[in-house]
Nucleic acid binder design. Structure first.
Length: 810
DNA sequence: ACTCTGCATGGTC
DNA sequence: TGACCATGCAGAG
């Protein structure tokens, strides 16, 4: 440890620490809220590096024993031409002066997905995209879709990307001999956690770059894109049928227009037939000069230094590049001295640009194809990516015209998180994490160009959230940033639709094909006397509980009249199937007398305010997704209703439905988790007290002969579900457990009871928990969960009641 | 006169 | 204020 001295620290957002030893260095950017990494211990403890810390060996190095090695940003010496090797000598990472150039690259992830998982990419994690494509390389983004890194964990497909040559590296610019060192690990908001690292690989100054790729990729029906992570997690997505896909991956960094391309989605513009790994590097919007006849493409300095071979002489080196068509080009990669700096250019690109039919305003992308380490150059027509690079700017669907000039001119404000998923065709991307998703992103998505926006801000702003775009971020922007992850959690597949689940970086990704997710009224799964699966649902109007088929997908405002399965109970005036007493045993949370709903307390008001904020975000997310760019523009500053149609409670649009359904799923999971804890406590209690008979009692009471609660989730879960329902009802919300899709953002801070009372809706899991806790008597000594109470009160018949009550704990 | 090359300038961040 | 980069421009070919 002693040899590892911090070379640089402190960044406006986050802390960058550089450790160098024996010509090896590592830049590590800490998350904003993380404690400053001041020693290697912490890094090691966080599992950033080797699985085993080699205390006997100084410096970070290619760890043979762990198999973790720096990720070469550029092909190893063997793959680099002689001239390049020559140059590398000039750029050796010498001891403490190792870094020059880029500083921390801001990484952001889709909030929710990884928020829970708290995924932290291993600094050495490589997230190239293993692509198996049969459609050839798509350079124009007409068929692009990216999978990327931080599923959010930073995201957000990871996120530091370089667009137009600018890394989002914060104040920390570590350059050595003109080579940028990137190491983004920035996850300000709940989002995809992406880390990018450039490590000096050896004395010959080859450096490694771990890039999080994020790009959008739209694949043809036969294409397959898979992201192969060094962590052995793989993502295989049948692109052609991806309707809604949750990607949760940690990504690496890429640069796009100076921004590292590193989202959770890897742009697979390059689609070789054979399985190859493509690591998106960066992209740049062609300027007039770039696209001019001169044939010189100005390369973003940091990108050039990070991903192109190091050059010591202005003459540079010839660079072989493949285009999407597989054609090989040779450009001269060189630089001009400029203000004591360098201006990197690719010369001789005109033929290639023309071949790709690119022009000023279009985007040229650079990726690296493995094996071989060849550079692949792609392009994307600007027309296909409306305002894509302008990110935060006001954007109108399909048009760049509304992009703030400041953003357009410099391709700044490129922000947003790579679209996590997308809806084929014109469907909005349900799963795009609103967080960090710029309006432009939304716009591009809605326009069938599922473009991934590098969150990277050209000028090294370092944070998507703090884009240098002149337009001040509005409250709605923030809401968007916070809501998509949550919104994602609300989406669930339609009835009978089984999502394909695959795991990426330990995160489950649900993929739905061809069927938009839906939202249904919460129900309580159960089994009837014949052992048949069914579910209980409460009428929206009379609050009576009815049995419906297990596969029944009910609208959020389901009422008795819609009970087509039991016409004898298709009216609110019809009696319930179960006697009150029995029903209460089964559904203890039921409170049939709405008049007895407890009054809203201050705490409740706060709780509801939280809900409202949450829902507002969801609402915004919905709008953004649903209405594309125009919606985004609306949501930015105005209440949805002011410029766009409201989503009614009964709205059955795909987005609303999806969110509602997803919410239910999420709720189930949450409840299950909580109940597992409760159950665990109970089990412990039982073991301690040795009261098996009480357990029996519980089961007996919870499983009446009629309407037995299904064992699908276990008893605990059932109980919580009931409580959940009860809480909903007890919210005194006129909306009764529905998501208010039209909450005004302006009211986010409005915590008045009046406000709350009018915005009752389904609770976000966390909100539910909060409410749950708030409902517990403060002096009851109840801990975080009812389990505590259960332990205190014992188990058995008290179990159910202790968890449910008129909105509180009995 | 035109193109290419290298550098300088100025705007933006 | 400095870095970056788009573009202009002058000199050379």
């Amino acid at each position: 440890h002693s040899v590892m001295a911090p070379l640089a620290v402190s960044a406006s957002r986050g802390v960058a620490c550089v450790f160098a030893a024996k010509k090896r260095a590592l830049v590590y950017i800490l998350e904003e809220d993380e404690d400053e990494l001041t020693d290697t211990d912490s890094a090691y403890e966080e599992g950033k590096f080797c699985d085993a810390f080699h205390s006997s060996t100084s410096g970070w190095r290619c760890c043979e024993s762990c198999g973790k090695t720096p990720n070469p940003a550029w092909p190893p010496p063997s793959q680099v031409g002689p001239s390049q090797l020559e140059k590398t000598e000039d750029f050796s990472w010498n001891t403490s002066s190792s870094f020059v150039g880029s500083g921390p690259v801001p990484w952001r992830i889709a909030p929710s997905l990884f928020k829970e998982s708290n995924i932290q990419s291993d600094a050495h994690t490589k997230i190239p995209f293993e692509i198996d494509v049969s459609g050839g390389i798509d350079l124009f983004g007409t068929s692009e879709r990216l999978l990327a890194g931080s599923p959010e964990k930073k995201q957000e497909f990871s996120d530091e990307r370089c667009f137009n040559g600018k890394f989002r590296v914060g104040p920390f610019d570590a350059l050595q001999n003109g080579h940028a060192a990137l190491n983004p690990k920035d996850q300000p908001l709940p989002s995809i956690n992406i880390q990018s690292t450039i490590l000096p690989k050896n004395d010959s100054s080859n450096f490694s770059v771990i890039t999080a790729s994020s790009s959008k990729t739209e694949l043809d029906d036969t294409s397959q894109l898979s992201a192969n992570f060094s962590t052995s997690q793989t993502l295989s997505v049948p692109v052609g049928k991806q309707v809604g896909t949750h990607y949760r991956m940690d990504g690496e960094t890429q640069v796009r227009n100076g921004k590292v391309l590193g989202d959770s989605r890897g742009r697979n513009q390059l689609l070789p037939r054979s399985k190859s790994v493509i690591t998106p590097l960066f992209e740049k919007t062609l300027s007039a000069s770039d696209a001019g006849r001169i044939g010189r493409l100005v390369l973003p300095k940091k990108c050039a230094e990070a991903y192109f071979p190091p050059i010591a002489q202005p003459e540079g080196v010839p660079l072989e590049v493949l285009d999407v068509k597989g054609k090989e080009w040779v450009f001269q990669f060189r630089f001009w001295p400029n203000n004591n700096s360098r201006m990197y250019v690719l010369e001789g690109i005109t033929p290639c640009i023309q071949s790709l039919k690119l022009q000023a305003g279009d985007v040229v992308t650079f990726s690296r194809l493995e094996p071989g380490g060849k550079l692949v150059m792609g392009g994307r027509k600007s027309s296909s990516v409306p305002s894509s690079d302008q990110g935060d700017g006001a954007v109108i669907k399909g048009s760049n015209s509304l992009i703030p000039e400041s953003c357009q001119a410099k391709n700044k404000c490129v922000e947003g998180i790579p679209v996590i998923g997308y809806m084929k065709g014109k469907s909005p991307s349900f799963f795009q994490p609103i967080s960090h998703v710029s309006k432009a992103d939304i716009g591009s998505i809605s326009s069938e160009i599922h473009e991934t926006k590098p969150p990277y801000n050209s000028k090294g702003n370092g944070s998507i959230l703090f884009s240098k775009c002149k337009r001040p971020r509005t409250e709605n922007d923030i809401a968007l940033n916070l809501s998509m992850d949550e919104a994602q959690g609300l989406i669930r597949p339609a009835a009978k639709i089984v999502a394909s689940v695959f795991v990426v970086e330990g995160c489950e990704i649900e993929e739905f094909e061809d069927t938009a997710p839906v939202i249904g009224r919460p129900t309580i799964p159960a089994t009837d006397a014949f052992g048949k699966q069914m579910q209980w649902v409460q009428c929206e109007d009379c609050f009576k509980w009815r049995k419906v088929p297990q596969d029944a997908l009910l609208p959020s405002e389901w009422i008795c009249s819609e009970n087509v399965w039991d016409l004898d109970r298709s009216r609110c005036s019809d009696a319930e199937e179960l006697a009150v007493g029995k029903l209460q045993v089964i559904l203890p949370a039921i409170k049939k007398d709405s008049s007895k709903r407890r009054e809203i307390t201050t705490k409740d008001a706060e709780m509801f305010a939280t809900q409202e904020r949450h829902d507002t975000r969801v609402n915004l997310a919905i709008q953004a997704d649903d209405e594309g760019i125009s919606a985004s523009a609306d949501s930015r500053s105005n209440h949805p209703s002011e410029k766009s149609p409201k989503h009614k409670q009964s709205c059955d649009c795909a987005i609303c439905s999806s969110l509602k359904h997803r919410f239910r799923t999420l709720m189930d999971k949450y409840v299950k988790q909580q109940l597992e804890e409760v159950g665990e406590s109970i089990s412990q209690k039982l073991n301690q007290q040795q009261l098996p008979e009480q357990v029996h009692n519980v089961e007996t009471q919870a499983v009446p002969d009629t309407g037995n609660i299904t064992s699908t989730w276990g008893e605990e879960r059932k109980i919580v579900c009931l409580d959940y329902h009860n809480m909903q009802k007890s919210s005194s919300s006129p909306l009764k457990g529905q998501i208010d899709l039209n909450i005004q953002p302006e009211r986010e801070e409005d915590v008045s009871p009046v406000s709350e009372s009018g915005t009752g809706k389904q609770l976000h899991p966390h909100a539910t928990e909060k409410l749950f806790m708030q409902q517990m008597p403060s002096g009851s000594g109840i801990g975080n969960l009812a389990s505590t109470r259960i332990l205190q009160d014992g188990i058995g018949a008290n179990l159910l009641s202790c968890l449910t009550v008129d909105g509180g704990i009995q």
